[in-house]
Design a protein around this nucleic acid. Structure first.
Lengths: 188, 188
DNA sequence: GTCTATAAAGCGATAGAC
DNA sequence: GTCTATCGCTTTATAGAC
């Protein structure tokens, strides 16, 4: 598998999958080397800061992806209902209908949580803000908008956990459908 | 802190908190020794199987607690609405209103997931069955009952993840209130 | 039962040849 | 840039004195 990675940027998605599958602690340099086809020398050439830098850059890339594909579309939306539907579609695609885990959530629960606490908090806080804002624009009160927004975020995380625990990804699809209905519901 | 533990049974709750706080991988023998006041010699005297046995026994104890305090009351209930309200109260108490994490969920997301996969799946499946059955008794169809039951389980897990990630336990309380309303709602 | 000492393996990280 | 070899540390686990 060596030499299959030509650019540094090509490395991050590979690293991301290793962290997703094994967590931060479980993602050993041996595993990372295996997944990328690179030896430790090369790895440290690209990431002088070692594993911590790798995880930080992976989290940054995830952040960027959500910024572009989720947060910005939410902000720019003129049709709230449609924006929400598209967010859910993007989320379903990103998490592969419940087969792919959320690295941010995994890190939030893991032993390395303190190291990345700010990044983790920021990720969810920005998502929460973006979604609450679009909900507010659809006519909901600020408090209801924030409540529904947090409900959606937690539903996504919980659906991923339960789908993995039960080894049944249909849980995720059902949860996304239920969540969409709650998000678009008229009142409380 | 040495000698504070007289019985083997007194050990399990302490171990459980270490696993909760650091995950399975992050819970080193040094940390466990610190939390229990016991040296490695004593630890291996009680748990010849080492860390894996410790975690397995902790999971069994958690299983027992939920069996007695959640699943059985759900089965025996003659008033579904009241049984659900009491389940939520027990859950809120167990998870300390969102301050205490779910070890089963942590393990489901961690690197050690395969080792404990059966136990994890069984825990959620039994909870799901117990809750769906009481929902069914309240007049819901089988499919709606199972859908709502899974929704409740995933809401609890997601609320714990988001509460920890945002470092805001009020998320958990709000989620429990919302979940209760959905569980007790008349129809879909 | 509890301790200290230690073994054996794996970890992240570094050095230096090429 | 990539490799191999290796350092120093931590890990789980064991041995044996008390």
């Amino acid at each position: 598998m060596a030499k299959s990675v030509s650019e540094r940027a090509d490395l991050l998605p590979l690293l991301a999958e290793v962290f997703r599958s094994h967590g931060y602690e479980g993602a050993t340099l041996a595993l990372i080397g295996e997944a990328t086809g690179l030896g430790k020398g090369s790895l440290y050439h690209f990431f002088p800061g070692g594993k911590a830098q790798m995880a930080a850059e992976v989290l940054s890339e995830i952040d960027d992806w959500f910024e572009v594909n989720i947060f910005v579309p939410l902000h720019k939306a003129d049709d709230p209902a449609r924006a929400i539907a598209e967010m859910i579609k993007a989320v379903d695609g990103y998490f592969r209908s419940g087969h792919r885990m959320c690295l941010v959530g995994i890190i939030a629960l893991g032993a390395s949580r303190d190291t990345f606490a700010v990044r983790v908090q920021d990720y969810f806080a920005r998502w929460n803000d973006s979604l609450a804002r679009v909900l507010r624009r659809s006519g909901l009160s600020a408090s209801v908008a924030r409540r529904r927004s947090a409900d959606a975020l937690l539903t996504i995380q919980g659906a991923l956990v339960l789908a993995r625990a039960l080894d049944d990804s249909s849980v995720f699809g059902q949860a996304m459908a239920d969540m969409k209905a709650r998000l678009l519901a008229r009142s409380d």
